[in-house]
Design a protein around this nucleic acid. Structure first.
Length: 797
DNA sequence: TTCGAGCGGATTTTT
DNA sequence: TCCGCTCGAA
């Protein structure tokens, strides 16, 4: 993220030197609840990370006492990177992550209390839908009346409201049926050992709510709770935060009500006002100094958003001067609009009328919905301007990858019927709908998984199914003790996936992706500390980490730290036995929680195309906001109620504030929509912008008039000073070398004794130092992964 | 079992 | 218009 350095305050701590007064006030707030209203481009991430660094550096909290929550993996990663650059602290050991990532970590650590198998798998949205479809078929539900998509939306909505089936009010017959299906869905998930995204949140919340010792433990532990993008939290997330916040914690909530654009998926801006009221927040700080844009752009944004009635109130300001006017263009058709955009971009890139050319990746074309990208793409393609569209299928969502993951999940958990059905006949092996129907009937009758029901089936279908199950089971045995890389390679061969795609005419890309999966696993192993060479930084520079054996069984002693160990997400051992997740199970979790890159074509310098939603949090030198027409932006469906229009206006506000130097707004009189030409008037938002910041490139309100391209000569020549890298900062002391590995005295092949599992044989050793884990085969309990720092493993003989 | 025709639906999206 | 999904025919 690009940020300019505000003037340094003399004499302040080096951490605070680069902050302006507002930012510094926020960073150094006393340990009590606070709300930070952070405008666009006001250095929000900087304030959050510096706050954590300042708390640590001033000894107010230890790394283990920080809980920092974001919405996206990207934001979490950025926070960790920046924090790591400010202080020599092991950020991986801290509880910094997404809501779902942290819930996952929490539930793995308390899987017994949560009533989940330790290796529970996570359903993504696709998996959830297919699970619901399966359920609906099984219970002969009328799919016309209860479309699976709607049920999915309904169930997710209930969970976001914190409601279990018993809590849902059912008025009509339809309601009752839906609640019943919700109930059945839950039972199915529980039986199969899988959880969906909403379940991760809801179950963590309930665990805290219902188990006082656990709640008290975490409340005592997390002295400082920091929330990013607070305006995007839903009801359940707010309640979840409340569970962690006790008498002595300080909640530091950062958000911007003007950038709340996710109401449609359950976000409640109202949480900000509720937070102030319910937590008796006395400290509210507004960050209004903007380091991103020139004032013509900011004035436009400020004036536009002032048309919203429900605001906490905030005005962005800058020291940068007016800059260029906001250019407005009216096109006769969507095609002409696209051609104008492309022409304008070519001028920008060549540097005509500007100082030097603009790099293509500093140019963004924004639109309200994805369908609008088509005509823009065609226009760019025709003249050979490289571009990149955001928002396609992500890596872990691709069909071939999902297939491979399904095989891997079956190795980990044969009860996973969703995965079973996904690959039972892929590659095709003669198992059709009829066989599967029989199998599902048998499974239902026996109350078991599809995998286990196979042995009961007979005939030719039974033979095919038996072959499939045998293949999986053999593979499971073969992969025992292998590295993750070897497991995946063996699976790709044995499943027939590679062979299948190699034979397919245009399967080359898919083969490539499958090979990429091996790489993804490899880098996951290295990054998460599963590899033998994983580097673990020492964590105790700023305060000792207590690594304690927890009290036995589920009765936790609230005075004892339970899981204060500095372990990365996936290595956190179970409090009781020291058992850790296998690298495979951990990788599968990673795949579900982080679907991978959202960009279609990586690589060369390209113009960026995306929806306004996708642009939130990004910034570019030049921004085009296209399709500004009534019915499109604001969208038709939002126009019926005021809240809807206000959210569209906030969306427009987000779009405008993405631009640093040059902003273009365009609309078209005619547009192809659903195969028909629609004629739209220009968006009401034009009337809500201040006239003095605008430069109309076409005469207002008249058709087809294409005036000369309006290239101002004033592309700013003043480049902003380069962002001072935190690595150069004086407080960034060199990291001391890591301690030598303690001798655990174990080797593969050795016989060991565990107090709970008895005698077993070591199969593999992984990791180093405190993160060392052993895979042990216990004759009576099967193969387990154990953290040596927690599990007591005594060599036998 | 697989492939192709026909139908309907079509903001915004992360985990 | 266009995509994805369902259903019917070989």
């Amino acid at each position: 993220m690009h940020e300019e350095n505000p003037p340094a305050a003399p004499g302040a701590s080096p951490l605070l030197q680069q902050l302006n007064d507002e930012q510094r006030a926020a960073v150094t707030l006393p340990p009590e609840h606070a709300l930070i209203l952070a405008g666009a481009g006001s250095g929000k991430t900087r304030v959050l990370t510096t706050r954590i660094a300042w708390l640590l550096a001033s000894g107010q909290v230890t790394p283990g006492g920080v809980l920092a929550v974001t919405f996206t993996n990207k934001a979490a990663k950025e926070m960790m990177t920046r924090l790591g650059a400010m202080l020599p602290v092991n950020v991986r050991g801290m509880w910094i992550g997404t809501f779902h990532g942290l819930c996952n970590r929490f539930l793995r650590a308390h899987f017994r209390l949560a009533n989940l198998p330790q290796a529970f798998q996570i359903l993504d949205t696709q998996d959830q839908l297919s699970a619901i479809k399966r359920l609906v078929k099984q219970h002969n539900v009328d799919e016309e009346r209860f479309p699976p998509k709607e049920l999915q939306w309904y169930i997710a909505g209930c969970k976001e409201e914190g409601m279990r089936p018993k809590d849902v009010p059912a008025r009509s017959e339809d309601d009752r049926r839906k609640v019943e299906l919700y109930q059945l869905y839950e039972e199915q998930c529980q039986r199969e050992g899988v959880v969906d995204f909403g379940e991760l949140m809801l179950r963590s919340y309930e665990l805290l709510r219902d188990h006082e010792p656990v709640r008290e433990h975490y409340r005592r532990r997390f002295r400082h709770i920091l929330i990013d993008e607070f305006q995007d939290t839903n009801k359940l997330q707010y309640a979840w935060i409340k569970m962690f916040a006790g008498e002595q914690n300080a909640v530091f909530a950062v958000g911007d009500d003007d950038q709340s654009i996710y109401a449609f998926r359950g976000a409640r801006v109202g949480n900000m006002a509720d937070f102030v009221r319910e937590f008796s927040v006395r400290r509210q700080i507004k960050l209004e100094q903007n380091y991103r844009s020139f004032s013509n752009i900011l004035d436009s944004a400020n004036t536009l958003i002032s048309h919203n009635k429900h605001r906490l109130g905030k005005d962005l300001r800058t020291d940068q001067g007016p800059g260029e006017p906001v250019r407005v263009y009216e096109a006769p058709t969507d095609l002409a609009e696209a051609q104008w955009v492309v022409e304008e971009i070519r001028h920008l890139v060549r540097g005509e009328g500007t100082a030097g050319g603009v790099p293509r990746h500093e140019i963004a074309i924004l639109y309200r919905n994805n369908a609008q990208s088509r005509v823009l793409e065609t226009a760019l393609f025709n003249v050979g301007v490289p571009y990149r569209v955001y928002g396609g299928l992500r890596f872990f969502e691709r069909a071939e990858i999902k297939h491979a993951l399904a095989y891997l999940r079956l190795l980990e958990n044969p009860r996973d019927d969703t995965s079973f059905l996904r690959v039972v006949n892929f590659p095709p092996r003669g198992i059709g709908a009829r066989s599967l129907e029989q199998l599902q009937d048998a499974a239902r009758a026996a109350g078991c998984s599809l995998h286990d029901a196979v042995s009961a089936t007979t005939g030719k279908a039974g033979a095919n199914l038996g072959g499939f199950v045998a293949r999986i089971d053999v593979l499971r045995e073969q992969t025992e003790g292998l590295t993750l890389r070897e497991i995946i390679q063996l699976m790709l061969e044995q499943s027939g996936l590679l062979e299948h795609y190699r034979a397919e005419r245009d399967g080359a890309d898919r083969v490539e992706n499958l090979e990429e999966l091996v790489n993804a696993a490899e880098s996951f192993v290295t990054q998460e500390g599963f590899g033998r060479d994983a580097v673990a930084l020492p964590v105790d520079e700023l305060g000792p980490q207590t690594l304690t054996q927890s009290p036995a069984s589920q009765g936790l002693d609230p005075r004892q730290p339970v899981l204060d160990e500095p372990a990365p997400d996936f290595v956190a051992p179970d409090a009781e036995t020291g058992e850790t997740l296998s690298p495979l199970a951990a990788f599968l979790t990673h795949a579900a929680l982080e679907a991978g890159d959202n960009q279609a074509q990586a690589g060369q310098d390209a113009v960026q195309l995306m929806t306004v939603h996708a642009a939130k949090g990004l910034e570019f030198d030049c921004v085009f906001v296209t399709g500004l027409e009534e019915g499109l932006f604001p969208s038709e469906r939002s126009m019926s109620d005021r809240d809807g229009v206000e959210e569209e206006r906030r969306l427009m506000y987000v779009a405008i504030t993405r631009a640093r130097k040059r902003l273009y707004l365009s609309h078209s009189q005619a547009r192809m929509l659903h195969g028909q030409t629609r004629y739209n008037v220009r968006s009401r938002f034009f009337d809500e912008l201040p006239e003095h910041t605008l430069k109309w490139l076409t005469p207002q309100g008249r058709a087809g008039a294409r005036s000369a391209f309006g290239f101002g000569s004033g592309y700013p020549t003043t480049r902003q000073p380069a962002f001072q890298r935190e690595a150069d900062a004086p407080w960034n002391a060199p990291v001391p070398p890591r301690k030598t590995q303690p001798e655990h005295g174990l080797r593969a092949g050795m016989k060991v004794f565990h107090t709970k599992f008895g005698e077993g044989k070591v199969q593999t050793l992984e990791g180093s130092g405190e993160d060392t884990r052993a895979q042990v085969n216990f004759p009576r309990h099967g193969v387990k992964w154990l953290a040596l720092s927690v599990a007591k493993l005594v060599p036998v003989e």
